[in-house]
């Protein structure tokens, strides 16, 4: 199934050494600063454009997706709207889609397990989950999630029984995906906030289930 290819397409090394106050900025940081400053000086964009967009990015975390999931678990009418049109339902909650993407929400059930990936780059539901983790952008996940999803899931400790159908969604254009995980047993009567607190980013990517002990970011 895997196509022969010996070359590495994505770096696997971790060279994100923290920059201390004393260390000189690296070459690419200098380039970023220079590109930004020239574009500002020439009037293509403003410092405020960048500053504001950083605030936008900082405001987007998996807690937003978790809030939508918890609402869907407790409000059947909202869940129906979320599955019908993920973007407009999230907009109801005040989540804007600043990158002009659409959102399809994929419901995990006893019969179907969904998983999201972007084999060509790093498409990700940033408006509702923030920026993706490194592993989502690196070769092993991108290359293998579409061809051997069960093995990839097993590497996350997630074993999907053979009678459960796996659906892998590969994002390539304007659609982004968010997995609506199954609500775990033992959460009857929990408040929306309690429920949201156990919904993890990785569960909304579809690589792990939601459990009573929150285990990952």
């Amino acid at each position: 199934m895997a196509q022969d290819h010996a070359h590495d397409h994505d770096h696997d090394h971790d060279d994100h050494t923290p920059i201390t106050a004393e260390a000189a900025p690296g070459y690419y940081e200098v380039m970023e600063t220079a590109v930004r400053e020239i574009l500002i000086e020439k009037g293509y964009l403003t410092a405020n454009d960048i500053r504001h967009q950083i605030e936008v990015l900082d405001s987007r975390t998996p807690a937003l997706g978790a809030a939508a999931v918890a609402r869907a678990w407790t409000d059947p009418a909202f869940k129906a709207r979320l599955l019908e049109n993920g973007r407009t339902a999230c907009e109801e909650l005040g989540i804007s889609f600043y990158d002009d993407t659409q959102l399809i929400v994929l419901e995990n059930t006893a019969e179907v397990h969904n998983l999201i990936v972007c084999t060509l780059c790093s498409c990700y539901p940033r408006p509702v989950l923030g920026l993706p983790p490194d592993w989502y952008k690196l070769k092993p996940y991108r290359a293998r999630a579409v061809s051997e999803p069960r093995k990839v899931l097993a590497e996350f400790g997630t074993i999907i029984p053979d009678d459960v159908e796996i659906r892998v969604s590969d994002s390539t254009a304007v659609i982004r995906y968010l997995v609506l995980p199954r609500r775990p047993e033992g959460t009857e009567g929990w408040s929306e906030a309690q429920l949201a607190s156990i919904v993890t980013r990785d569960a909304m990517i579809g690589v792990i289930p939601v459990t009573l002990e929150k285990e990952a970011a």
């Binding site: 069960r150 093995k151 009678d163 796996i166 892998v168 969604s169 994002s171 390539t172 659609i175």
Partner: peptide, 11 residues
Amino acid sequence: DGSPRDELHIE
């Protein structure tokens, strides 16, 4: 290697 019902979805 998996269930014959497994699917890939893409736009």
